[in-house]
Simulated scan of single mutants.
Amino acid sequence: MKIEKFILGKFQSNCYMLTNGNEVTIIDPGSYEVENIIKYMNMNKMQLKRILLTHGHFDHIMGLKIFLNYFENVEIVIGEEEINFLENEKLNLSEMLNEKLKFDINKLNLIKVKENDEIDNFLVINTPGHTIGSKSYYFKSENIMFVGDFIFENAIGRTDFPTGNFMQLKDSIKKILIFKDELIIMSGHGRNTVLGKERKRLEKY
């Protein structure tokens, strides 16, 4: 599997493209600026199979609109607790941009996931705290976890937005600490890191 990272928009959101043959999975398309990704996919005759969302904040879902203009029957994978983020500008925080980012969820091919669900080669892990339904996606064969805004290099996610909860975040951190130090952490912003580098800091929580 090939993994590519794109840094998008003024919020510098990390969007990941996972390619297996000609099938593509996109993780967190957080900006409208995804045209170059789509052009690249079309040039190489790639097909978008699914979009994984770690959580429902605008800087992780904005590009959905653009992708869905180009590709049909795309699976949208999101935590079952955060379906309403897709249709509520207060929860997805787009009202901060004076914009109402809303989707008609009845027109989306939604895959609602929960703890320990498996889709192809990834495992869903509940990691609430930044938002109530934050999910991390663990690819065992690659020893990689896509964590959204749950953990960053030298930082943890904010908990002061709607549905954020610091105690839940602490519990989520404990769940991740059972993994080995070599685990690669792919965050929603900033540089990637490894669990071993973050362990002592995270254990303080």
Rank of each mutant, 00 (worst) to 15 (best):
F103P: 02
E72Y: 10
V24K: 00
D59Y: 14
V194M: 10
P128C: 10
L110H: 06
I125D: 00
F179A: 08
E153W: 11
F71M: 12
Y137S: 05
L86W: 01
R201K: 15
Y70P: 06
K39R: 10
Y40L: 12
M46D: 01
N92V: 08
M167Q: 10
E99C: 08
I173E: 07
K65T: 09
K90F: 15
L64K: 01
R158K: 15
Y32I: 13
P128S: 05
N106R: 02
V124L: 00
I27H: 09
N121R: 08
N98W: 15
I76K: 04
S13G: 05
Q12K: 15
F85T: 03
L86H: 05
Q168I: 01
I144Q: 03
D171S: 07
L169I: 06
N192M: 14
H57Q: 13
Y138P: 01
M186P: 00
T25Q: 05
V113F: 01
E89V: 04
N92P: 10
N192W: 14
E95Q: 11
I83R: 14
T54M: 12
K39P: 00
T159K: 00
S31C: 13
L169T: 06
K197E: 11
I178Q: 11
E72W: 06
I125S: 03
E23P: 01
L86V: 02
I132W: 08
G148K: 10
N143W: 11
E82I: 04
D104F: 14
